[in-house]
Design a protein around this nucleic acid. Structure first.
Lengths: 106, 106
DNA sequence: CTATTGCGCAACCAAAAAGTTGCGCATATA
DNA sequence: TATATGCGCAACTTTTTGGTTGCGCAATAG
């Protein structure tokens, strides 16, 4: 089972969950109200997000609050970053970018 | 069929293809040599990347070169950007970030 | 103690994705 | 022309997802 950040943000519902949780920690029930699905479905997404460590649980009595952990998002940023110059200034300083990609990968 | 950038970069093989093609345009056969799969499998990934407009075809005789189109990568960068401050300086200027997320979404 | 609420977990289902195989078309080579 | 190459496309199989339903457990409320 592939469980990385890229898989986590591939689903639009999960991206929305991340957006909501980044604003404030929430319980599965509270989150489910924002979507047109059941609590269990949201719960499954939260499980995936937890496995990817994008989200962190915090039990308070019988409620479980899910907090956002921004750390993993950096991985995505790091992947996109080398391409930035390609879309900002195209065909300019190209070899510098490529050297950057080569050393980053592998 | 969901066809967006996030789906495109969810697969590690596709991320590798993007990395290779960003360095220089390649044909499916040339690409396939880098991976432990068939040309057709690579071809399918290229098809998906083409639909997402991350990659662009260019026919030269009987060969088809796939070029990288960095434009779509910006969408990913735009998604991650609002969270940047959360992982750089945590709990600092938080409400500014949140306002940013709120206006970006929906 | 009993009832209710908030959960996770396991089993099951339908849909989508990833990969394979076989084909046909167009270009290049002899 | 005959043959080989590079490719896309379609059909099919297997694996992975996203979702639902039903259960049981722990914590609160009465």
């Amino acid at each position: 089972m592939r469980r990385d950040v890229f898989q986590a943000i591939a689903d639009p519902t999960r991206r929305a969950i991340i957006g909501l949780i980044a604003i404030q920690a929430m319980t599965p029930n509270a989150l489910a109200e924002y979507f047109d699905t059941t609590r269990q479905a949201v719960s499954k997404h939260l499980q995936i997000l937890t496995e990817c460590e994008i989200v962190r649980q915090e039990q308070t009595g019988r409620e479980i609050y899910y907090h956002f952990n921004p750390g993993k998002m950096k991985e995505v940023a790091d992947f996109v970053e080398p391409f930035r110059q390609l879309w900002e200034k195209r065909f300019d300083q190209l070899d510098h970018v490529l050297r950057k990609i080569k050393t980053t990968k592998k």
